[in-house]
Amino acid sequence: MKKLMAGIVACAMVFTLAACGSSNGNNSGGGSEAGAGNKADGDKKVYTIKLGHSDKSGDSSIIDWTARQFADLASQYSDGQLKVEIYPSNQLGDQLEQMRSVQNGTQEMVQGSVNNFGTFAPSVNYLTLPYIFKGSEQARDAIDKLWDKNNEFGVEQAGMRFLLWTDAGFRAITSDKNHPVRSLADLKGLKMKVPPNKIFESAFQAFGSETVVLPFSEAFTAMQQGLVHAQENAYTTARTEHYYEVHKYITDIEWMYTISAFAISETYFQTLPKELQDALVKAGKEASQLERDRFDQLMEDDIKFLEEKGMERLGKPEDIDQWIELGRSVWPQAYESIGGGSAAKGEEIVNEVLSIIE
């Protein structure tokens, strides 16, 4: 009998607790305050965006640092609905492979140099014309004032939308211990690594070097094995990619301003609700400014770091005016590509840029 009574009491307690739970749910419209928050979180769709880049992870890489700022801002402005996952060090493939993936919609975002984006959206190659910019303010002016125009190029020609732009100063030549570059004469017979971009090839052929076309991911190994004698890039790249381990000299030819971008698949972008599109655009523009501020602080640190690692700065070439003349002489070769098949259109784009920055 005692066991029977105990069972009856237990059942009564279960029913009482169940009734209390039901009453609380009805009074709050779906749960207590905490429960309502959980329900809201459950109802909110989270969009995961894979973002790949070529740099190493960590604060020493301004690209990885900027990617993390962007991810945080995108989450903040979307109230947690946008989750940006960052894949550094070519984990998703080299830049060109990742750009193809973004273009065909199998990857959401990619960061890459403007010269590589120019493979897919040729009109943005105006940014890579030799000696088009005389200083960082001119380059940044072109980016800011032509933001929408650049996105027209990216969307129409490549199916990619540029969300943020980064810059890392003028590009310099780094070369091995047997090939210091002090003048154009030093480029004769020198094997110069260049990316797969016709403007780069044309420029360094005009300068007199023997160009070797290689993707970014193969550069260090080629230098290490002596397959190339020199390469050109930003100081920050020489630091983050450990070029100081294989190269001795830096020459400030300042032939091109280092510009890169973070781009999203336009197909994917259009699947997002308008408020999330706006959140990404806002995060991108804010991260662009944060990157500029940080770069201005880090440039001197990069120079000091490379010199401490044993690299020797040779300054500007003694015949820099000839470099500028030769570099600008290849512009007409790029007009047709920049103009999407029309040399006249390409020249028009370039002249528009010059009217803005000069």
Score class of each variant (00 low, 15 high):
155 V>Q: 04
73 L>S: 04
119 T>Q: 07
288 S>K: 04
268 Y>H: 10
329 S>H: 09
352 E>G: 08
129 L>K: 09
189 G>C: 03
108 E>M: 10
121 A>I: 01
271 T>A: 03
88 P>H: 09
339 G>V: 11
310 G>V: 05
78 S>P: 01
103 Q>D: 10
123 S>L: 06
178 N>W: 03
29 G>C: 13
167 D>C: 08
112 G>E: 13
68 R>M: 12
66 T>K: 08
189 G>V: 03
290 L>T: 05
242 H>N: 14
131 Y>E: 07
85 E>Q: 14
94 D>H: 08
150 N>F: 14
31 G>T: 00
100 R>F: 04
182 R>H: 12
281 V>H: 01
199 I>D: 07
239 R>K: 14
139 A>V: 07
128 T>P: 02
313 R>W: 10
239 R>Y: 13
121 A>C: 06
13 M>V: 15
152 E>D: 15
166 T>L: 14
102 V>L: 02
142 A>W: 00
202 S>L: 14
259 I>R: 02
304 K>E: 14
50 K>D: 15
45 K>L: 04
70 F>D: 05
93 G>N: 07
215 P>V: 13
110 V>K: 08
185 A>H: 10
134 K>F: 01
123 S>E: 11
227 L>D: 13
217 S>K: 11
15 F>A: 15
276 L>K: 10
348 E>G: 09
30 G>V: 09
334 A>W: 09
86 I>H: 12
290 L>M: 15
223 M>L: 15
220 F>W: 02
14 V>E: 00
112 G>N: 09
118 G>A: 02
127 L>V: 02
109 M>D: 10
341 G>V: 11
5 M>L: 15
69 Q>P: 03
50 K>H: 12
9 V>N: 00
202 S>C: 04
346 G>F: 06
306 L>G: 09
100 R>D: 14
245 E>K: 08
204 F>K: 08
132 I>S: 03
34 A>F: 09
6 A>G: 06
22 S>I: 05
311 M>N: 02
101 S>K: 15
97 E>M: 11
78 S>G: 13
266 E>S: 08
34 A>H: 03
12 A>T: 13
267 T>Q: 14
276 L>S: 03
290 L>V: 07
291 E>H: 15
293 D>E: 14
27 N>H: 10
173 I>A: 06
277 Q>I: 00
168 A>I: 12
190 L>H: 08
328 R>K: 15
296 D>S: 13
208 G>Q: 11
51 L>C: 05
348 E>K: 10
